[in-house]
């Protein structure tokens, strides 16, 4: 017996039951909620660290301001407690703090007696510039080196990945001194003391960019060599494309996704890494603010920097997610 089923409308198999939000919008909303949770967590942790420190906070504040360590009278402490709201229950202090953050108020510095936001905003520009230049330099170095050496003969490949590994492991402090000795003191190409000029940023940025380039290079190289053997690359060669063109126009796009992920992490890490480099090259920036604040126990400033770094991480990772879907459009649907 032969049974047949008559043709049916094509859409019969597709039950139309769509969710309210489109998946794309829902993903963006999810990301924003997650970002807010991360920021709130970082801010709370910073607040709890202040509370957990030993000693009376009002006394600490007075000592920080005067630069002397001594016992304070209750009258002195009362005015400080009133100024910073320290007499309130911890929960109220916490809510005040979070409320301030929501309004963009990071509190008042113990030492300088002025808003933390003012202190940070004076210095943050230099650090963000350094971060941006570092990232660009790292990408340029990495792409140049990987494109040049990946997927070549055995010896060149070994050299390529060897350099990746060595540079990825270089300590920035040591590398910075080396660059200073060679290019600033020895050859005199760049100023010894950084400043904010264009030539002053090259050595500090290189100090951070070289290890980062090595690190990203390791991740990119694997994908690069895998993509080089893909069938669509053979198709491109069969079209008459040159090897360099293939590497730049086809392979790179497939190979850089891991490096994009690392860049999100690197933006945050570079701000932290700036502490060492800025003191080494005597550059202004958030690093020097942080060192001074930690030295003098100026907790609102430390907290402010922590929240700022956390915010940078969050923004960087949102950008990474965005870059992902631009580089690989297939991810929009998955």
């Amino acid at each position: 017996m032969t049974r047949t089923l008559s043709s049916r409308p094509a859409d019969a198999a597709t039950a139309a039951r769509r969710p309210i939000l489109s998946p794309r919008v829902r993903r963006i909303v999810e990301k924003l909620v997650a970002a807010a949770v991360v920021l709130w967590g970082a801010a709370t942790a910073a607040f709890l660290a202040q509370i957990a420190l030993p000693g009376d906070r009002a006394t600490t504040i007075l000592n920080v301001r005067s630069g002397q360590t001594q016992l304070r009278t209750p009258e002195e402490l009362a005015s400080i407690n009133a100024e910073y709201g320290l007499q309130n229950p911890i929960l109220v202090q916490y809510l005040d703090y979070v409320g301030g953050l929501l309004r963009g108020d990071l509190g008042v510095s113990y030492q300088q007696h002025r808003p933390v936001w003012g202190i940070i905003s004076e210095q943050v520009g230099a650090t963000l510039t350094l971060t941006a230049v570092t990232l660009v330099l790292a990408w340029v170095l990495m792409i140049f080196w990987v494109t040049l050496t990946a997927g070549r003969g055995t010896k060149i490949r070994a050299l390529g990945s060897g350099v990746d590994t060595v540079t990825a492991g270089l300590p920035p402090y040591w590398l910075g001194i080396l660059l200073l000795l060679v290019f600033a003191l020895g050859l005199g190409w760049f100023p010894v003391i950084g400043g904010t000029g264009v030539d002053g940023i090259v050595l500090p940025a290189l100090t951070l960019a070289i290890p980062l380039a090595g690190f990203m290079g390791q991740a990119t190289r694997t994908e690069f060599e895998r993509s080089l053997t893909a069938p669509f690359i053979i198709t491109a060669r069969m079209r008459g494309m040159s090897d360099l063109n293939i590497r730049l126009r086809h392979v790179l796009r497939h190979a850089i996704l891991p490096a994009v992920t690392l860049s999100g992490w690197a933006i945050g890490a570079t701000i932290s890494g700036a502490v060492i480099v800025e003191s080494l090259f005597t550059r202004p920036g958030i690093g020097s603010v942080l060192i001074t604040a930690v030295d003098s126990q100026d907790l609102p400033v430390v907290t402010g920097v922590v929240v700022l770094v956390a915010a940078t991480y969050v923004v960087a990772n949102l950008l990474v997610d965005l870059a992902y879907t631009v580089i690989d459009p297939r991810m929009r649907n998955s």
Partner: peptide, 18 residues
Amino acid sequence: GRRIGFILQDALVSLDPL
């Protein structure tokens, strides 16, 4: 590409997927 064209199997992997 100009005088000799080449067709490989399955375009899903033989054309750049991006």
